[in-house]
Design a protein around this nucleic acid. Sequence first.
DNA 1: CCGAATCCGTTCCGATACTG
DNA 2: CAGTATCGGAACGGATTCGG
Lengths: 121, 121
Amino acid sequence: MARHKTYECSAGCPVSATLDLIGGKWKGLILYHLLDGTLRFGELRKHIPDVTQRMLTQHLRELEASGLVHRQVYAEVPPRVEYSLTAQGQTLREVILTLKHWGEAYLGQKNRKRTLTAVAR
Amino acid sequence: MARHKTYECSAGCPVSATLDLIGGKWKGLILYHLLDGTLRFGELRKHIPDVTQRMLTQHLRELEASGLVHRQVYAEVPPRVEYSLTAQGQTLREVILTLKHWGEAYLGQKNRKRTLTAVAR
DNA sequence: CCGAATCCGTTCCGATACTG
DNA sequence: CAGTATCGGAACGGATTCGG
């Protein structure tokens, strides 16, 4: 049936557009953790142990520029900066969860294949 | 409620795992076009005008190594190579379509905002 | 605590030329 | 037709240092 047949998408293809926004090395993870609610910069770092602060800052800025993440700065000492999803970012919830569910199935199948010869079922 | 709360995913996070597989610069597009069925190398190039042959080859090889795409070589003159989704790759259909639908909504909203001041409704 | 700035190696990616 | 080989610039990304 192919309802989406022969869709020419040289520029502005929806699939690529979405992946450009969330496909960065850490963006998916950032967005995923922000689904739960507002997080401080340091909290995000704890949730994503392997990210450097430079990369986290940079990707958060890009997500902010895309209108997906809101950055709230409090003029306090010590400083506090909180990140949360914008209304636009909230619409990504089902997208992120779809990625998560597929990834779980994929990883599960990988593991099963690897242990298949070792486990006597 | 946050059913997915405090999910620590330093290594092997499902969200990142999925994005690692489909998040390459052209992979989403390749997979999207293969949803319609088998395509030859040259046909894929026509569908994705901006990709260089080098990049297309490279990404197809990675998708093949991931077990998402099947590569069928025919020993003919002139040569013919056909690409299609594996059973594993077929399971990505709803993922890709979710990305597409969100992207359409996102791009649509972008356009509406930009033309809002220029168009008299 | 949050982040900017610099340095520097690695990877990406386009252009081009060549092959079975 | 469907690649492979090589090159060079651009972008990515980590470590470290400094600042409000």
